[in-house]
Simulated scan of single mutants.
Amino acid sequence: MTEPCFLVADVGGTNTRVALTAGRQVLTETIRKYRNRDFANLAPVLRQYRMDQGGATPDGACVCVAGPVANGVGELTNLDWSIDGARLAEATGATRCAILNDLQAQGHAIGYLPEDACETVIGAPTPGGARLVIGIGTGFNAAPVHDTPGGRFVPPCEAGHANLPIRTDAELRLCTFVSTAHGFPAVEDVLSGRGLEQVYRWLSHEAGSSEEYLAAEIMARIDTDPRAEAAVRQFIQMMGTVAGNLSLIHLPLGGVYLVGGVARAMAPYLHRMDFADAFRDKGRFAGFMANFPVSLVIDDFAALTGCASFLAEQAE
């Protein structure tokens, strides 16, 4: 039996990746990346892809967006774009369409990725059960993953807009600093690409300086700039704290999965800068935290697999 052809897209705050699939298998030779700033909305991106790629009309289309999805409409948090089923169908020609939050798509990908798609951050027994995907990139979000008799259930959430946790006087000062922009210190104000830039600016402010750099520049300066190293260390400590908090909320005994470009950029420093200690620092529940293994998804196209998996499951 021939696998169905799906058109899938991962719409981030900066770029959109589009591909064709054979069932759950992403056809890597069809992956194309488009800069969002070159388009007025998502529909023109998808029409451009069909022109660039050519070929038959897909059997189904699924896009995931970096923002909330409600009543069949996806709204990007960091970009003035939206998409609904009717516009998705018109742009792709597909009769079966779906719109997911980007972390929902990552959740639907777990279990269908290649064996080498993940790296271990914290090892532990994996008896099964719920899993948790945490995304750190242009923004921050998380999604629990539940396999049920009725199929996989990945409920959406907007975890990046919850309050930043505060454990120390320094973190209180950081929260006060980042809250000046929006009047509210959210997780995403620190745990994101622009968040790392905020942390560096805060450390400069603490030192009576106005020096600042872009996130990529900060990462490049870790070995030569003590402030860059301190910014990354603060970032990773907060990353561990928030991931630990979310793990206690969702109890992902099947594992925590870190995804996103910023999470991958932090990979070489997670052990050196004590991510695991921050993750487990939960007082009398510190020992209990050993129940949650943590992995890093290094497959940059996992969300595309998730979109395909969602469509494939709906067809089964």
Rank of each mutant, 00 (worst) to 15 (best):
L88I: 01
L174M: 12
C157Y: 06
C97Y: 06
L7S: 02
Q198A: 15
S82F: 13
V187Y: 00
P125N: 13
Q48D: 00
T2R: 15
L132M: 10
L174H: 12
L304N: 05
T28V: 13
G67N: 07
I83N: 00
T92L: 02
T241I: 15
A117H: 08
N245A: 13
G255S: 06
E211V: 13
G255C: 06
T2L: 07
Y112Q: 11
P155V: 05
M289W: 09
A267G: 04
E188F: 03
C157F: 11
F310H: 12
A215L: 02
V259A: 06
I83F: 02
Y200M: 09
R35Y: 14
G260V: 00
A231P: 10
A98V: 08
V199W: 01
A265C: 00
P127K: 12
L258F: 07
D225M: 08
F235R: 01
E158S: 09
G13W: 04
S247H: 00
L7M: 11
P149E: 01
D84Y: 00
A220W: 02
K282V: 15
L248A: 03
Y200K: 08
I31D: 03
L76M: 09
D147S: 12
I236H: 05
R167P: 05
L172F: 12
R87Q: 06
L248Q: 10
V69A: 03
A9Y: 00
I134W: 02
A22K: 11
T241K: 13
G287A: 09
I166M: 08
L253P: 03
C307M: 06
L214G: 14
L246V: 04
F310M: 08
S309I: 08
A117T: 05
G137N: 12
L270P: 12
E229I: 03
G151Q: 11
